[in-house]
Each structure stands twice: as structure tokens, then as C-alpha cells.
Amino acid sequence: MNAVAPLIKLESISKHFGEGSTRVDALRDITLDIEPGSVVGLLGPSGSGKSTLLNAIGCIIEPTAGRMTLDGEVVYDNGWLRSDLRRLRLEKIGFIFQFHNLLPFLSVTDNVALVLQLAGYDDDDAKHRATQLLDYLEVGNRKQAYPANLSGGEAQRVAIARALANKPRIILADEPTAALDSQRAGIVMDLLGKVAKDQSAAILVVTHDEKIFSRFDVMFQLRDGQLSSDAA
């Protein structure tokens, strides 16, 4: 085992929706460490709690119990310990969502540059870095386009550029390659692997996509909200 402190540390994290007869236990007692530099796959049937786990780590939904440490900071201990979760997200976490979630009224470049500006980059630096990332992800030719005019694959790559823009150490991706052909899926996974090494980031990827299983350092399986690990 590695002695490096984990970037993501979950201890007995649980989450249920509703109460009584409508209660759904989406996560049961999840304990998990993810180390810097690793690309981790999260597998499981539909409804097993993969998105819920990802959103809990991203501080988008609040767990119901447990303890969560991100990048050395305890952020949840049977309750949020930070009031500025948005700042935390901006600084530490990059998201790649299932439904891209690009802002429809901003051009491709501005969607990426906005995150950088919010993080304190000035206009020119933000635009410059956004352009570089988009070129790297091979969507540089759509810089001026608006999200409504992008194909699913293009939108996904823009969303990835946005997630990587602020060089977060934690990257959470929900089905990032679902809309991509295997060549582009390979490029995305290469990129995530490179980011994990270069920025010594922890990357957690929810996927069904067997084409990319070989790219993971570790894989976990979720079933009915419970975790079992599979060595890749």
C-alpha cells in the first residue's frame, strides 16, 4: 500500500432519500480512499447509487451520515463543516456531468473561461488557457459556437475542458465517454490519466463503458448502495 495521504477519504458515508415507506437507501456505509495520481472507475447497475456517491463527494448533495475528507480537509462530519461549498468546488473539484451542463448563453470559449475568471484569472489569461484546453481536446474549431449547436461529443469535450480548467485536484466524471466513439473515448481517458499524473489529481469516473475499463488503476463496484472493490 501507498503511504501518500488520500485526496478523497470517505468513512461510513450514508445517504437516503425520503423517510418511512418512501425511504430509499442510495448509499450504505461507504468507506473509500482515493489517492492522488489515480484514475478510479465506479461501476454498477442503474440505480445502484453511483451518481449519488459522485454528487456527495462533489458536495452537491449532503450525505445523511459519515465523515468525508477532501484534500486533507474534513468537509463533512455528520453535517457540513464549511459554509462556502461553492468556493470549495471552484477551488478543488472539477465536474464532468452526464448532461454536460454548459451555459447556453455563453460561447464554448466563455463557458471554459468563466470558471477561470471566477477563480481569479484575468480576462486574457482565462481566454488563453481556455483556448489551449479546447485545442488540446480537439474542439478548438468550435470556440465561437454556442452549446446548442454542438454535437453530443463536442459538448462533452467542452465540459471536460471546463472541468480541467482550474487544475482541480479532484475530478468527478459521470459517464464522460458515453457519447463518444472509442477513439475519442480513448483520447479523453488518456487526458484524464495525464491530468492525474501531472496534477497528482484523483479522478473518479462513473461508467458502463467496457472499452475504457483497461484505463482504470482501480475499479469499484456499487450494488444497492454498497461498495465492493475490484482490482483492475
Partner: peptide
């Protein structure tokens, strides 16, 4: 929806 997205990417209330 756009406002929720802004929150997701970490935009402050002021924005």
C-alpha cells in the same frame, strides 16, 4: 437550470 449550473461550477451569489 442555468443558475443551478452556475452554483455547480462554483459561481458566488454575487454573480
Amino acid at each position: 437550470r442555468e443558475i443551478a449550473t452556475l452554483k455547480l461550477i462554483g459561481a458566488p451569489d454575487r454573480a
